[in-house]
Design a protein around this nucleic acid. Sequence first.
DNA 1: ACTAACGATTAT
DNA 2: ATAATCGTTAGT
Length: 573
Amino acid sequence: MDSEVSDFDQPMGIESSLEGENGENAPVYCICRKPDINCFMIGCDNCNEWFHGDCINVTEKMAKAIREWYCEKCRRKDDSLEIKYRPKKTREKETEQERLEKQRGTPDFKTDRRRGSRIKRSARMCGECEPCRRTEDCAQCDFCKDMKKFGGPNKIRQKCRLRQCEVRARKMLRVRDEEFSMMKEQDSLQRDGQLSDDYDEQEMELYHQYRAAGYDDHNMPWLSDEEDGPFLDPVLRKRAVKVKHVKRREKKSEKKKEEYKSRRHKQKQKHRDRVKHSERGEGRDSVGLRQCLGPSCVEAARPNSKYCSEDCGMKLAANRIYEILPQRIQQWQQSPCIAEEQGKKLLERIRREQQSARMRLTEMERRFHELESIIIKAKQQVVQQDEEVNEGDSDDTDLQIFCVSCSHPINPKVALRHMERCYAKYESQTSFGSMYPTRIEGATRLFCDVYNPQSKTYCKRLQVLCPEHSRDPKVPADEVCGCPLVRDVFEPTGEFCRVSKRKCNKHYCWEKLRRAEVDLERVRVWYKLDELFEQERNVRTAMTNRAGLLALMLHQTIQHDPLTTDLRSSKDR
DNA sequence: ACTAACGATTAT
DNA sequence: ATAATCGTTAGT
């Protein structure tokens, strides 16, 4: 939601008084053009202006139900803009507006796709500053490193420092002072670098680490590049990490000392830091141009690159592959691959399951046809006029039944009929759709698949029991019920119920239910098959990738102890 | 005053 | 169901 209670809404605490400096050049808002922000405000999703709830008669409570809000001016200018409300789940009572929306049809069926095109605004996001506009996490700040996606423990759970709003995020969450200068520098480095796109921040960071660890590319040209991480000797790599940690600690103690000094002094220090960083990071490159690392190339490298051209980079990469790959392939073939064995076993199992699923499918198709022929046969029966079925009817009359859908008391005689209709009534009020039509080859009559242009979805109920898109056909007066009669619940007698279909309360809609039973099972089998196919595909991809170029280049199997080639101990198997 | 941690809420 | 990220709090 784009409306919000501003963080100044609460009584001034320590924190907000600290942040008060943000309001120094207080901007004005709303139709009243006053700088007041100590009350509930709502932002226009078109012009981004903020409005006081009181000035435009929108309460905080109303705003809770609003998903997109547009000010009057914008709405007057552009007719297509209308305030959108969120569909309510277990929220408080429906608002008047919401109900209107509902009556107009299925209100929210994935029609709202404005995310991404617009920056969201909230209590902690002004939506306008650079950090708010940023969409990528920097992957290097402490918050990023904490994130699961960057392999962190997810303990801090704050968003990337570079994405903390300049205006509204808490100060302590924004970019830290001592890191700020470095990041800024990197930013500008990237901006005027010719190959700026090839260097993202992560790579820059790696680059810095690498420099910090004291390697010199010229001694080890093979190990000089960004993507070389995995090739580093583990010992060397460890040392690199250590160096980095030391640096961290130094930084910390430096900061502690500084806390005793004046603020002014601190800023001076910051400046010095910046100079220091730039010297270390870039100084040499900008003065003496480096030579391109391309094989036998004598050109100068392009700024921010190690090569004079893409071509040289590619050549070097190709050479690298020629050099390393044959050795890797040999290594690969030397040791048995357990994952490969397991994969094969898994594939076998999957295939067996596929086999049985297919058999089950044929069986279900057979039953499908069988049922259809039974139904055809049943229709040929003649209604038996005289025998008005009244077994047990008399003593049922004082029994009371309540409909499971509407909870009204109903006559047991018509209970089935009523409940079926009642259920259909409610069921047809909801939609059950998917974006895609069903495409199953060789399958007849499974899903309803009626297209709903409003929600752009296809109905995914079973066709035979979709009350929304198919009415039960009107029963002609002379039609027979025709339900196959059974003995002991399951054993068919070969006879059919010969009561008039309109009058038979016992077997109401029996064809529909029997068809649904079969179809449901067919759907299940199809799902199972689908799942198995996917599994098979996954296993296959894994197996192909395992000995693929990339994997061979990136990983290798090290046999730490030649005596135990196969690390599986006997008890494992 | 500050940070790490974490439950809770919201978005996807 | 999971990811993102907010507000709160205990600990330093």
